[in-house]
Design a protein around this nucleic acid. Structure first.
Lengths: 331, 331
DNA sequence: CTGAAAGCGCTAACAG
DNA sequence: CTGTTAGCGCTTTCAG
């Protein structure tokens, strides 16, 4: 049998309540008794049972994080931001992968509520109507990170995906490419849609007729980027610039062009999105949209701590700044 | 107030025990009552409280994972393996980053025990004496993944790091490089030490005198690889082949050489370690040691489920197979 | 500053 | 097949 608060109380000749007080740092304890209790805690090797505590206090100091795929370079950085701040505020994090599967998201959400988490950070592609409803009647606060929610009113931390894409496309336009191409990840993912909108806005703004063959919709992988580049290169009127919806795809695009003898940026300029570590791990180094991934996670978790603490939060929707960083994949 | 098992019992005109039985899938319930209970669970929107359940049953169906850094491409893949199997066996995973800091590892370990996790998967660089002692008197099973433990006797899942490094170096030797160079990550990390040993064994086996300047000890980052390449290239008798202790560093090494006009593999061959996704995201593509990262995580978690279940486990130390994959960074 | 006592919501014998 | 009854280990009033 493990040593319990009761054992400590008996051994130290105090009540359970007093032991509980010193364990929880309650100031209403005479220094002498505090010291005595601390001593017997030490000798007995007492370790508080967080489950019992959670049942009694209705707070578990545990948060849930629903993430599409922790092995993705983008999301793992987000997760790190969440976890760091969670730890800073003494929370543990239950992490689950959803693969952006709506059913799984629902299941995970409910499973986390059963575990009595104090709050949840959600990341996903698209928030289904049903999930949104569940979010809205959630007994604990939820923060959505790096994810676009359509109709809902859940606190969110993200950047302006549309505007950033607009600016990235415009960088290319300003380099005398009237009509850059666009390589997109899954369009079921709302952030990708926003990027698409921003791209379109930049292109159409210059009175260009949009060439559908310049828009490649695919999946967010390196290999898809590789293929997209091939496809674009084969066009009779090959584009001279490409905006890609993620760094990983952009690396694929760059290599796809290089593999068939095209030079980046001389023959074709490329801009990515996210500024993951990959952006500097390629030659030429990648010009890209800086999305402060780690910070999004950190800010989302910080916001969640406030919500869990029932603190006044003036702005439940925070939009973090983005910028474009020019490296060598553009001139 | 939330709806409890008691509410369901009253509403369904049965006892708490019966409700508990149907919730837990206990077969000793008449189909008719089961149906009735399920019905009122539905209408009342009852959601079992896992914390109360954990307190009563002394099982939380939660495991802990201590990981150096989830944002690392290597560890995030490991984590995905762990989480997938955890989910498969109905466990949740509490994930914490240690940054390989011994104090943090100790703290995290104890914090997870307080949370009453049913088991722990540990990944790290080096297991401190104190941590090992704590592991040995842990009340719940622990599995060590992708980590070399010195003296301890804790169940472990890994590959033979030394042998794999030996083979990788030998591949280079067989390509007529008598004395390949070695670029190593932190030597405080035991797996790196094993790689070093394997490298040395291959080199000395051929009666070569080891040139200390061919051994670059650094940190496991892309930038460190970049610098290491420069350093090696400046040597009066530049090596003609390099074995690198991780893919990420290897990418840096390749680019470091390329940046000063050297060609890989013509002027210098490069072999990496891990076969992360990075290995194919570089030109030339990287020859590397295949470490089944995801599988290590998956197998470790599977082993942990058996241990938690008190099943008979014949082999507490599993060594997964490795192999060398030749791509274009070698001839 | 300290103690007594009543739960938190559930499981697990045990009895029938 | 079902109900009764103790707890699990801790927090939290409420008194004093």
């Amino acid at each position: 049998m493990n040593v319990t608060i009761y054992d400590v109380a008996r051994e130290a000749n105090v009540s359970m309540a007093t032991v509980s007080r010193v364990v929880n740092g309650n100031p209403n304890v005479k220094p002498a008794t505090r010291k005595k209790v601390l001593g017997t805690i030490e000798t007995l090797g007492y370790r508080p049972n967080a489950v019992a505590r959670g049942l009694a206090s209705k707070r578990t100091t545990t948060v849930g994080a629903i993430i599409p795929d922790i092995s993705s370079i983008f999301f793992s950085e987000l997760a790190r931001g969440i976890e760091d701040i969670a730890t800073m505020y003494k929370y543990n994090m239950i992490l689950s992968n959803s693969d952006q599967n709506p059913d799984k998201e629902l299941t995970l959400f409910n499973s986390m509520l059963e575990k009595q988490v104090d709050g949840i950070v959600f990341m996903g592609g698209k928030i289904s109507e049903e999930l949104l409803q569940q979010f809205e009647k959630s007994p604990v606060p939820i923060v959505i990170a790096a994810t676009v929610q359509g109709t809902g009113d859940i606190p969110t931390v993200a950047i302006d995906y549309e505007q950033a894409a607009y600016e990235a496309t415009n960088l290319l336009v300003s380099h005398n490419h009237q009509h850059p191409a666009f390589v997109a990840g899954e369009t079921e993912i709302e952030t990708n849609n926003e990027k698409y909108k921003g791209y379109l806005r930049a292109v159409t703004e210059h009175n260009v007729e949009v060439k559908q063959e310049y828009i490649v919709k695919s999946t967010n992988t390196y290999d898809a980027g590789l293929k997209a580049a091939q496809q674009l290169a084969e066009l009779s009127d090959r584009p001279s610039a490409v905006f890609v919806s993620s760094d990983e795809m952009a690396l694929g695009v760059i290599h796809g062009f290089q593999d068939i003898g095209l030079n980046v940026p001389e023959d074709i300029e490329v801009v990515g999105y996210d500024n993951t570590r990959l952006a500097t791990m390629v030659r030429p180094t990648l010009s890209t949209v800086v999305q402060p991934t780690y910070d999004i996670g950190a800010v989302a978790m910080r916001l969640l701590t406030k919500l869990m603490n029932k603190e006044e939060v003036t702005d439940k929707n925070v939009t973090l700044p983005h910028r474009i960083i020019e490296r060598n994949s553009t001139k």
